[in-house]
Design a protein around this nucleic acid. Sequence first.
DNA 1: GCTTGCATGTAAGCCGTTACATGATTTT
DNA 2: AAAATCATGTAACGGCTTACATGCAAGC
Lengths: 183, 183
Amino acid sequence: MSSIKYALLSLLAREPLSGYDMKQQMNGRVSFFYKINNNQLYPTLAKLEAEGLVRLESHERESYRPARKVYSITDKGVEFLKDWVLEADEPRALDDFMLKQYNSWLVEPEAMIGVLRAKRTEHEERLRIYRAKIAGFREQQAVFPGRDPLFSSIAVIEMGIRNEESYIEWCDRVIEALGRDEI
Amino acid sequence: MSSIKYALLSLLAREPLSGYDMKQQMNGRVSFFYKINNNQLYPTLAKLEAEGLVRLESHERESYRPARKVYSITDKGVEFLKDWVLEADEPRALDDFMLKQYNSWLVEPEAMIGVLRAKRTEHEERLRIYRAKIAGFREQQAVFPGRDPLFSSIAVIEMGIRNEESYIEWCDRVIEALGRDEI
DNA sequence: GCTTGCATGTAAGCCGTTACATGATTTT
DNA sequence: AAAATCATGTAACGGCTTACATGCAAGC
């Protein structure tokens, strides 16, 4: 039900990793700006192992530290993930920023313009990060067939870019309307 | 913490409503396509009342039915909502569809094209709904100053329109790339 | 006669968040 | 001397979902 198990499988479908690695890679891959916490991560990994979707590959103790447990995805895990990819997905949860906008009429226009300018800056920053990321990917290889993980990574980031661009355009439009006092 | 309380306050900031009304209005207003359930709705309303952010306005029993409890927002509730609007918001949860796309390389391109075409159709449908909604709003009034609820409603729907448009463009682009086997 | 609509609510269980715990090494 | 890094995990709490419960009226 929860999408965290799929997020973990998504990372392992590309390369074997430890729980700690997955935590690091979560941002910058599956979703930038999303932070997983330990109490989701470790019990979920244990469950995935119990279900045979994931296998403990190595368990190397390095002197003082807790043993680093590297997991890899099983064939069953890959099938499970593929089936999920083809499923229809459920409606998304409420978007807090949009909910706030729905109430913007309660607030002084000047204050609202301040909020929107801050948002605009934030989304410009994200856009810059996405563009840098995609440029890096494109250097790695000239042609990406449909079954290459890079193909998927690029597609996801392109969606991010489009979203940020339309967000920024929208901010500009609303800021301008608030300045004119009409839309 | 949870955004449901703000969603309920958002509706009550515009007009007094019963819990049942809020459930109906949730879709088509704050967020299309999101469904609130009873066990969030009624206890949350009770809490809002206990906190003095909301007031029971009438409690009309109509023969056989449970009494219809109409709530209105208090001044304290409006202040609370305004303060929240000006707060910075937290990073969003994982987007299931994007997570699926991140794994598209595991799936046969033909199957993926099928999924994307279905998504495209779904988002075209949403776009049609948003455009109809905004056309309806624009008929109601010629000019909308910044402090009018209609201003906010229109801004939210315009964001929806932009999002759907870029989603559709992105689907087209990826479908085309999958057909060519490159991006 | 069955389903849908109106209108409120509760119970059980899973999911997610914040905070805590351990403990040596490296960086500031 | 303090904080961050590596690396695993647990405890407590609150949020959210699914399902259930009531009960009459109107439409198919």
